[in-house]
Amino acid sequence: MNAGSRTKKNRKKVRVFDVMNGCLMVLTSLVFLVPFLMVVSASFSDNTALQRDGISLIIKGFTLEGYTFLFNAMKDTFLRSMGISVFVSVLTATGTMMITTFAAFALTRQILPGRKFFNIYYLIPMFFSGGMIPVYLIVRGVGLYNTIWALIIPSMCGMYYILLLRNYIAAVPRTLEEAAELDGANDLQVFWHVIMPVSLPMMFSVWLMSFTAKWNDWASSLLYLGANNQKLWTLQYVIKQMIADMQALFGSTSSGSVSDAPLISAKNAGIVISVIPLIAVCPLVQRFYISGIMAGSVKG
């Protein structure tokens, strides 16, 4: 009797907790989402209404003016920077994925002479770097400065990705490799037929992560490109300038009247466009990266 009433009380308490926790989760999720929704609403709103009343969750005077403005009046800046960003991010991500997978594969081969040395070689830069200015001077020194390759090549090898992949590959049963070697496979064949097929999920998450990092990188454009090299600006750098001073950016890069341009709608439309690929990436990373680190952590 006594025990029964206790569980009943507990059950009631539990239900109260579930409801409160549910409310809290809805609330935090809203905190994560609302800033995005506001940008979306502003991008479809009428510019004069935005100037008058500010931004809210409700679309005021639905219009596509912001978007058409970006693709017409600011075509030379915006559309071009989108192309540059896609090129740079895809190339960086693909290069990073290949280079780090190769390195991780070689490092997991017990047979590699000098393996200890190479492990330390890749470990040291994780803890100590020369800093921003020495890297900047190296980029100048090797002749990449002011070219599109300055945005790509220096970020093509992430030590952290090597570590992730190495742990992942180390969890692959040795017997698979040994069986291939007994059949007379050389290292390339072991990589191609044994290691790569099972590492694809982790390779894909490395691709996604380095794609995201590069897509979001605006500082490199400022650091490694000359002040007036507008042709190579990435999308994020253009967005950065749009947020800081849309009027100045529009004035310096396009011809046309500033006074009646829908600058606020266009700015928010730019943000929406720049975020779309990342929203597509997010659930994919959740799926591949998280299952990847789980698998890697079992043995690594």
Binding site: F36, Q236, M242, V275, C282
Partner: peptide, 11 residues
């Protein structure tokens, strides 16, 4: 997590 700081600055 996937949004750049530049965009967060805009938000």
């Amino acid at each position: 997590h996937f949004i750049s700081w530049a965009v967060v600055g805009g938000l």
